[in-house]
Design a protein around this nucleic acid. Structure first.
Length: 938
RNA sequence: GGGGCAGUGGCGAAAUGGCAAACGCAGCAGUCUUAAAAACUGCGGAGGAAACUCUUGUGGGUUCGACUCCCACCUGCCCUACCA
């Protein structure tokens, strides 16, 4: 071996180490996960990515730490399954097809290939034999099959309704895919419009109550709150009012205790009874209002600032509790989609009704009297009273107290509801804000809805044996954005499975959230063409033990997948799995765990934001043409101190934006100037000489989400090339609180680089570092103590998803080994071996390499996780912190395990304590052994 | 309007009611070098010559002791919103 070769092996070259082990692990199928009933299983899952093309560092952020934790569980003795796949249907593929004339399939599979390559570099223990791709016919066959099962069980239905439509994506959207105050499309940001369309829905509302039960899962409170908020349960009563023509109008109210104060009713303009109650005299006005309301977009409505509008129908209803005759109005503040689309209006106790009543001069009758104030007066009130009090003007209920609680916890609500039921006027009722899940999409690139329309038989499901309904490849993408399925005769025309007559296929495809609602089950047996998943695999692996991913899907994917699992249960889809579990002797509790909730533990990571930086400060000379400045010369300077003063021919400022030939410059006074350059403009940029151009000018970056258009995307390929995958993984875990995320810092990664270099050097330096002195027992004990303290710390932190402190613990342990002094070979060996094992989940490549270099048997990833021994970790002397009146006044070193009496003696002997005692006797001494702390109270 | 989360050095952060700032980044000083980078060593919240004092968004409270628990407020972020 030449000197240079030897030097080379002594230097840490991540790319060499990583390529070598990546290949070997793949060859040895190190990460194949197979059923092994002798070991406890662990199903770790992280959200599958959409096939957007390039992985950015944001994809690594959930995956790499999740992988480290999966590896950690594996070393702890679990049989771990950690699969990966692709959410491959969706609009961007179709848009690419339209814009670039590439088939969505070509685009998608090319992206998958690139992303697989990137993911393999990460060193994750993904079991690629279980990979799923949702646009594979082998996959979407089963997506279609689930639709059929749900249809058979009454969980899928078609309904004409007013739905949200994105004019840019050319498709309908589920309600949760419409976001923000201005109601824009979740994907593209275009304001949605309303369309009346015949669409397919999944009956998620059937599960509203069950979805509110989180008792069997350990999910972040934040997700729970968001879902609860979204489901929007409210308890109250349904009450039936009669029109003068004896037509019932059912209303929902959370305040039945205010029924006696109902002075009018309001129907949504689209309410079916509006025509009937409208009198001929009011006909024109009502028709005009309905027409105007229908024309108004959601944005217009909000833009009007909640100013109440409405018209009287001319009709009356009878208040069932007091036989009062009250007018019926229509107004768009009552929504057809919530409750029953009709309300009783109690202006005295509801803000909205109050505003409406004042505007249209309707009577206001108080029926709740707040305690300790003047009696409310409907004519002089300035706002509705929604607080507590005592019922008045309420017939038999006068004097009943009303508090601020909701539903049956409120004595007034409870009493009136019971009375309504007794008298058959109304009934206890629960209303949800949750709507059924709209799954129809007017797009090509999605799983077809397996329904055939026949003139004789109506909507007929495609027989299971005919699945999958395949997407035709030979399609033409219109620039209009209309789905090509509508004009594809081969796809469209078919025969009715029932009567054999000519029939047409459904051309809508399914929401891609449908594909991702059940992918965790397909991972169980993606090779299985006879069933959605293999019951043998399911019986062993289910449920998902930990799920990691972003919180942005709280009310979408994470709600849908919970619904899906419950619906699957009720369709009997887990029956075979349950039978297998029974055969294998599973307990009923274990069996129940698999089908009520898909994922037991959920943890969300934060978002990695772009790295901020200042823009170049430049001096441009030239001349103004209008508001633009035409530059002859642009010079980058160090700071404003070196700048000449601005004039008609000179602009000074920081560059905030850059385009092909213009710079936006912010002057020290905060004014923006557009500086235009041309090919003759000269640039003076330090380090670029005469070759500099506008591309070398740096513009300011604020802390923002990474996006291509902002130019602040961190490419993991570059980071890996520069530092290696291990360093990148460790940095992702170390730099932020995982659940919080934060702006990328390209400097900070150096700390991880130094750490791994130190580790590398420790292993290679081992022989010479060992004992030159006779007695190493003290140093040995110290090092062994540190070793076991590190085991505890890293184990606890990895278990708790506290990745940053786990890595900090590893770094601290490395520092301890470096400072260990003269120790025995045994103690050194134990420390270094332990360190590598503890590092293996975080930095799998370097750990494997150094493990091999230490002469240990392949593979470190098959090793048992080190076991913590509290006896070895215990200190033998401690530094006792002494407080006097809660302030630290002294620290003394005492033997570990001193009694309170001894500690008190040492403490009172301390000169510092003497000083603060001022000769007085302590009133009280508190000794906390665990905390190495003693507190003297004077 | 309703609900939730967060606020700690220049920066990322750490701290079962018990030594605030572990572990890092940046910085400063030194060693090495012709020099720089790298590496190594040391310093490292603020004030003060020092003893010491002050410091976890602000103000109160509970406690021997509060970043941590309770109340009010300020700021930022997220969800939701004529939801009856």
């Amino acid at each position: 071996m030449t000197m240079t070769d030897q030097q080379k092996t002594m230097t840490y070259v991540p790319s060499e180490v990583e390529a070598k082990w990546r290949e070997k692990w793949e060859q040895d199928e190190l990460y194949r996960s197979q059923i092994d009933r002798s070991r406890p299983k662990y199903y770790a899952l992280t959200m599958l990515p959409y096939t957007s093309g390039d992985l950015h560092i944001g994809h690594w952020y959930p995956m790499a730490p999740s992988d480290a934790r999966a590896r950690f569980m594996r070393m702890q003795g679990y049989n771990v399954m950690f699969p990966m796949g692709f959410d491959a249907f969706g609009l961007p593929a179709e848009n690419a097809a339209i814009q670039r004339r590439i088939h969505p399939k070509t685009w998608t599979y090319a992206n998958i290939k690139r992303m697989e390559g990137q993911m393999k570099k990460m060193g994750a223990m993904f079991d690629w034999s279980r990979e799923v791709i949702s646009c594979d016919p082998e996959y979407y066959k089963w997506t279609e099959w689930f639709f059929l099962k749900f249809y058979e069980n009454g969980l899928a239905y078609k309904k004409m309704s007013s739905v949200d439509f994105c004019p840019n994506c050319n498709t309908t959207l589920a309600r949760e895919q419409v976001v923000g105050e201005d109601r824009v499309c979740e994907r593209c940001g275009t304001p949605v419009i309303k369309k009346d369309l015949d669409q397919w829905f999944f009956r998620i509302t059937k599960y509203a109550e069950e979805l509110l039960d989180y008792s069997k899962i350990d999910w972040p409170e934040r997700v729970r709150f968001m879902q609860e908020n979204w489901i929007g349960r409210s308890e109250g009563a349904y009450v039936t009012f009669m029109t003068e023509d004896e037509d019932p109008i059912e209303i929902f109210t959370t305040r039945p205790d205010t029924l006696w104060g109902a002075t009018f009713m309001v129907l949504a303009p689209e309410h079916p009874l509006v025509q009937k109650v409208t009198t001929p005299a009011q006909q024109n006005e009502v028709a005009a209002y309905i027409e105007a309301a229908g024309r108004k977009s959601e944005i217009d409505r909000t833009a009007e600032g909640k100013e109440k509008t409405g018209v009287w129908t001319g009709g009356y209803a009878i208040n069932p509790v007091n036989r009062e005759r009250i007018p019926i109005w229509i107004a768009d503040y009552v929504l057809l989609t919530y409750g029953t689309g009709a309300i009783m209006a109690v202006p005295a106790h509801d803000e909205r009704d109050f505003a409406f009543a004042r505007k249209f001069n309707l009577p206001i009758i108080p029926v709740i009297q707040p305690e300790g104030t003047e009696p409310l007066n409907g004519d002089t009130m300035v706002e509705a009273w929604s607080g507590s009090g005592v019922m008045v003007n309420s017939g038999p209920f006068n004097g009943t107290p009303v508090n601020e609680e909701k539903g049956s916890k409120n004595p007034g609500v409870k009493a009136v509801t019971a009375w309504l039921e007794e008298n058959q006027i109304g009934k206890l009722g629960i209303n949800y804000r949750l709507r059924d899940w709209l799954i129809s999409r007017q797009r090509y690139w999605g799983a077809p809805i397996p329904i055939i329309y026949c003139d004789n038989c109506g909507a007929v499901p495609v027989p299971e044996s005919d699945l999958p309904v395949l997407l035709p490849d030979d399609v033409e993408f219109m620039p209009t954005g209309e789905s090509p399925l509508r004009s594809h005769p081969g796809f469209l025309n078919t025969t009715c499975p029932k009567c054999g007559g000519p029939a047409k296929r459904e051309t809508d495809t399914m929401d891609t959230f449908m594909c991702s609602s059940w992918y965790q089950y397909r991972y169980l047996s993606p090779w299985d063409n006879d069933e959605a998943f293999d019951p043998q695999e399911a019986a062993y692996w289910l449920p998902v033990d930990t799920y990691t991913g972003g919180i942005e899907h709280a009310t979408m994917h994470l709600l849908y997948t919970r619904y899906f699992t419950k619906a699957m249960r009720d369709c009997g889809i887990f029956d075979d799995t349950i039978a297998v579990m029974r055969q294998n002797g599973a307990t009923e509790a274990e069996i129940e765990r698999i089908f009520n909730e898909p994922m037991i533990v959920l943890r969300n990571q934060g978002i990695i934001l772009g790295e901020p930086r200042d823009g170049h400060i430049i001096v441009a000379s030239g001349h103004y043409e209008g508001h633009k400045f035409m530059a002859n010369d642009v010079a980058v300077i160090g700071s404003f101190e070196d700048a000449p003063s601005a004039s008609a021919t000179i602009v000074v400022g920081e560059v905030t934006k850059r385009s092909e030939n213009t710079l936006t410059v912010e002057t020290p006074e905060g004014r923006d100037v557009i500086v235009e350059t041309d090919p003759d403009t000269t640039f003076e940029i330090a380090g670029f000489g005469a070759g500099g151009g506008i591309d070398q000018i740096k513009y300011r970056l604020d802390v923002e989400k990474m996006s291509k258009s902002k130019g602040n995307v961190v490419n993991p390929d570059q980071i890996v090339e520069q530092y290696g995958a291990d360093t990148t993984r460790a940095y992702m875990m170390f730099a932020f609180r995982w659940e919080k995320g934060g702006p990328w810092d390209s400097q900070g990664i150096k700390g991880v680089v130094r750490w791994l270099e130190d580790v590398w050097n420790i292993v290679h330096a081992a022989p010479s570092a060992v004992a030159a002195v006779e007695d190493t027992s003290k140093a040995d004990r110290d090092l062994r103590r540190k070793t076991h303290q590190a085991i505890k710390r890293v184990t606890d932190d990895m278990g708790a998803f506290s990745f940053n402190t786990a890595v900090a613990g590893l770094m601290e342990f490395k520092n301890a080994i470096q400072r260990a002094g003269d120790v025995s070979a045994e103690a050194w060996q134990e420390a270094v071996e332990t360190m590598l094992k503890l590092m293996a989940p975080v930095t799998p490549f370097i750990a494997e390499e150094l493990w091999a270099r230490m002469g240990q048997p392949y593979s470190i990833h098959h090793q048992q996780w080190p076991v913590y021994d509290p006896a070895i970790a215990a200190e033998d002397e401690i530094e006792l912190v002494i407080q006097v009146n809660g302030k630290v006044r002294d620290r003394i070193v005492v033997p570990a395990g001193v009694t309170q009496e001894e500690a008190t003696q040492y403490t009172l002997a301390s000169p510092a304590v003497q000083k603060y005692l001022e000769g007085k006797q302590p009133r009280k001494v508190i000794y906390i052994a665990d905390r190495k702390m003693i507190s003297v109270v004077v």
